[in-house]
Amino acid sequence: MGPLSFYEIISENTNFLMAFIIGIGFGFVLENSGFSSSRKLAGMFYGYDTTVLKVFFTAAITAMLGMILFGLFGWLDLSVVFVNPTYLWSAIAGGIVMGAGFIMGGFCPGTSFCGAAIGKIDAMVFVGGLFIGVLIFMEGYPLFEKLYNAADLGAPFVYDSLGMSRGLFAFLLVVVALAAFVGAEWAEKKFPRDEY
């Protein structure tokens, strides 16, 4: 039955409309969780505030369980759901660049727009930096092209690589997430900060 747009149950335009509504919901939840504050996001790296980990990891495992269960019920055809292909080296390089930018700027791309939308100046500067980065990548593409396309692994799944079933891997990931939340709460007690 799903994905709705793939099986043309809804039109491409309705699909965009739904994406728009979901995007507003996403922005609302980001703002509501306090993600428009760069100090809160930076807290993840210092241990005094681990909301980022909790919100995103909860979102990830909730979506994972939802999709697997929907797949089991036959509501969602997981075989046609888009899986971002893995280009090993560009993923590593991109991860480093993104991580460094995250620590320095205190935002990830999504939250910077959230912050800019409510008038945070540091977020606006971050968005400006984002566009500069995009420009450098675009203009310097011939330089990066080789790295960008290197080691195309297709769309591998961790559970296939580990040789376990999807369900078992999902369960283990839930356990890892809960363990991480316990660790996060410990860190918040260990490195408290009254005001940030």
Binding site: L65, L69, L72, S165, R166, G167, L168, A170, F171, L178
Partner: peptide, 14 residues
């Protein structure tokens, strides 16, 4: 989440 996790782990790939 834990019961749901156990559930999806217990059901064979459908």
């Amino acid at each position: 989440l834990l019961p749901l996790g156990i559930l999806v782990a217990a059901i064979p790939d459908n």
